[in-house]
Design a protein around this nucleic acid. Sequence first.
DNA 1: TGTACATCAGTGAACGCGCGTTCACTGATGTAC
DNA 2: TGTACATCAGTGAACGCGCGTTCACTGATGTAC
Lengths: 220, 220
Amino acid sequence: MTQPLSDADSLDLNTGRKTSISREDLLAAALRLIGPHRSVSSLSLREVAREAGIAPNSFYRQFRDMDELAVALIDVAGRSLRKIIGAARHRVATQRGIVRGSVETFMEQLRADDKLLHVLLREGTVGSDAFKQAVDRELMFFEEELRTDLVRLAAAEGTVMHEPALVSKAITRLVFAMGAMAMDLPPERDRELVDQISTMVTMIITGARTIAAKQKPAAD
Amino acid sequence: MTQPLSDADSLDLNTGRKTSISREDLLAAALRLIGPHRSVSSLSLREVAREAGIAPNSFYRQFRDMDELAVALIDVAGRSLRKIIGAARHRVATQRGIVRGSVETFMEQLRADDKLLHVLLREGTVGSDAFKQAVDRELMFFEEELRTDLVRLAAAEGTVMHEPALVSKAITRLVFAMGAMAMDLPPERDRELVDQISTMVTMIITGARTIAAKQKPAAD
DNA sequence: TGTACATCAGTGAACGCGCGTTCACTGATGTAC
DNA sequence: TGTACATCAGTGAACGCGCGTTCACTGATGTAC
């Protein structure tokens, strides 16, 4: 990062124009600074500019302020998460395998280098309104996709699920809460946590089915 | 707060000594500053001192730094919460009533003036290690008490519950996550949220029972 | 009761720091002719 | 191809601010004699 750049690094090969800082460079710099004790909202504008190797005032060419950068970061994180979970749910597996497989995928993404998931896990409770709303929007996308899967899953088995929207919300919030906890634990405990979270999710799904079966014992 | 103090206010009636600032005064000042957009960890030492009506450096007579104040605040909040939930669970009620009654109590406490619960809901994901550990310790106390109740409840009905410790953890984390969400919503939606949370908790308990019943269909 | 003294909670002033934001600028780029 | 010019991404210096922390102090309190 601080090594002198070669021509190939500092020049855009198409135009010969000197490369300029991009929004992506700033987002990457912010992600690099995020760690177990640093949330996006605790980063200063000057810190991010320093990490990106630009003057503090150059920051304003890309974002109005740190809040705008944070919202952009949440957007990227949300899209990334949905892509990954979308891939996971297309795997064909037994029902127990679906739950465990998805939880494992989630946990792997949590430990990934890009730290994108950290943004969604940490920033939900602090920061400005725009900030929290952005995180909430991503969680709602997630809930909606999960709800669709749950309904499809139940239909494929010829059963009905009690309030799938609520089941989906409970699973989403619980998984994210447990994920936030996991971030502070050493990765050696990931297996244990995957077990715990999978069992919790299974309990919720089983409970919703049992309630549905009791309410409408014969048909619908 | 800024009115001139009468003698009765500014003098300790027992000794005639001028009242001095106490740790409690500083904790109260910090709680007054906490709101939907302010977490304890975003408060500055000078802000708290200002709110308490003392010089910034007088703060050091009571706490080493803001982190120490925050941990003290978490301790107070945790003790308060356990007392309230302890009272709620001593109420005799139907099983559905126990869940809903406890969730309602939790929600009432969330909206209470003292804002103590806010501390536990907001600060779990940010702040120093000492900070997060303090919040986690309170949640674990909570989990443990809930686990005891769940086992007792199952025994009273002659049934068994699957992994009560895990059930208790799932319920605790889910309720706190939903509570953190509720803080940002208008109180008009509290009823709706109590319904949702109660149903979620019931799903988890029902799921755990169903699994236990399937695993050990006859005895044990 | 009166006097001298030790204690110590609270103070006012000052420090150096990193912050967000502004300003006028520079100098490479791409374009018009 | 060469020249003059407009554009605009990035800069260096400076600003005022609130912060955490320090220092030597003050003045009321409680105690020893």
